[in-house]
Structures are given as structure tokens and as C-alpha cells.
Amino acid sequence: MFHKEKSIQLKNSASALYNNLSVLRIAPRRLTYFTVVHANVVNMVSTSWDGLNYSHRQLQSKEPNVATSTSLIMQAAFCALPSRDLLVVSSQKGIQMYESDGSIMVYWHALDTPEAPTAHAVFARGISAVSDNYICVGVSSGAVLVFDIPSKGSNITLSEVLEEHKEAITDIASECSGSQECLANLVTADDGGNMCVWKSGEEFQLLNKIPGLDITCSSVKLWKGTVLAGYGTGQIRLYEAVTGILHAEVNAHARWIYSLDIAPFSGLLLSAAEDSFVRVWHLAITPETNSVEIAHLHNECVTDTQICGAKFCDGDGYAFAVTGYDLSEIIRYVQS
């Protein structure tokens, strides 16, 4: 169903971090941007759709005011808002927001870090744009920071802090079907597998809490009012967001899942794990009748690689990209 295409070489190998691959399509310029985190560097590659041009950029996690600190990066993710695209980088020290091509840093938010390290590590992880003008970023304390993003310029403000989680945030996702009918449009997940379902607005409204089973939910997606969650046990679970009803449970992988992605137009679901497998599934959800179907379509084994990032390259799921720990390339697969 899918076949391997030419790989994209990276300047550095990928670190073992959840959701360690982000993809942004710039349709007017026929370009795709990819980012992969390597320790304290974000590797960025811009590729032309004809596959002829590649350009690389590296971003260091540096606090703008204090030239003396570099810190390990936890995640880099593109956030596509209707008015602008930003690249958000979360690290041990704080949150950086760049123009999507990585050229200019437009905002910096420092985390409260204790002077001497404490038993609990401090970091930001879990990044998602939601609604017209918000970017949410999770923190190791369990807090979720909501930033209000103006349609242009650098006047970004921290508008709200959501404090419902007690464990470190792992991932955040917003409704990606484009449907305005879905009441819930944001889901946040944590290290204990707990999830909170939100409705965004001037004040974010907590709609539901889905309790965890004491195993990390490492990657989460929200599609057609259904929460898709990947866990450390290798399971994928599908919950109705607002009620928390469990619709489906899949014994999907033999090791920790590191990444889930959904192609919103076709309902293809991608799951990737430390077991070196990437699997493609097909989802059919009819909210009106509460019907959920999930079928397995395809396996790809990236031999001897613990996969840490996997993303579709387009909304139909025509192609997807994969990277793994210690791997200095992005492997691409395209539908045959």
C-alpha cells in the first residue's frame, strides 16, 4: 500500500523523545518543512515538492537574555493558526516561538526553574495550536499554559494557566477535522495517562476528565469528537471526548508508543513505537450514531530503530514521514 521514497538526511540524529517529528506544508511555495530534535538542537529541513532542493537550519535552545545557558529540548512543533504559522520549541528552560521558517524568534517564555535542581525535573512538553488565536504548551508540573497569539507581530501574551493535571504533560492536541460542530476542541494528556477535554475561549472550559490507568499516554489526537490516545503499554484507545466512553481498544504495539497522527480528510491513523513498527489504520467515525470503526491497513518495520516520530505529510495521508532514535534521516513512505 505504501512504498519507501528517498530519505531526507539530517544534520544530527533524532533524540528519543515523544512526537519527535513535526511537518508543515507551505502549499503556495510548494515546500514542506520538517523538524527533529537532537539533544539541545532543533534540526530543520525545508524540502521542495519536486524533491530537488533541501535546505537545512539548526536552532539552539538558548535563553535570549542569558547567553550562558543551553538546555535540552523536549519538543519542537509547528502550530498552524488561520492567520500565521509558528514553530514552537519547548525545553528545560522555557518556550520559544519562531516564525515557521525558523528565521526569527518572536517570543520567549521562561519557566520557573529552581536555583538548585530538585528531584522533579522542570521542562515544557506538549504543544498545540487551538481555535483562531491560541497556542497551548504543557509543563512538567502538570500545568497547561495558554498563549494568546496576535495575527501578526510579537505581542504574544500568556492568557491563562490550566491547572487540572497533577503529573507532567506529555502531549496536547486540538480537533483536526475542521468541523465547527464539535463541542470539545482540545485534549491534554499526562504521564499518568489522565486526559482533560477542553473547549477553548477567552476562558478555557473543562468539559471532561478521562482518568488514566497509571500508564503514560505519550501521544494524543482529537478527531471528530473522538480522542485517540497512544500508551506506554503499546495500546491505542478511542474515547468519546465529552463523555469519556471507551469505543475501541487496540493492542497495537509491543513497546511504548511514541507517536500518533491522523490524516483528517481520509481518517487514516498512523501509530509508531519503540518496537520499530509504524502501523497505518483506517478510522470511520459517525458521531450521530455513536459508531466507531477501526481497521488495520498496513505495517512498516524500520529495522533496528526505536521510532520516536511519525507524521503524515498531508491531510489525506498520501505520504508519511518517520524518524527514530540515533537515526540521522527522515524516512518517507508514499502510497502506491
Binding site: 503499554t233 503499546g234 495500546q235 471507551l246 475501541a248 509491543a254
Partner: peptide, 13 residues
């Protein structure tokens, strides 16, 4: 690993 099921089963509720 302990706590993980052998992959291969989809259950719908």
C-alpha cells in the same frame, strides 16, 4: 514487556 499484550487484537465497545 510485562503489562503489554501481544499486538494483534482490535476490540470495539
Amino acid at each position: 514487556p510485562r503489562g503489554t499484550q501481544i499486538p494483534g487484537l482490535i476490540r470495539i465497545f
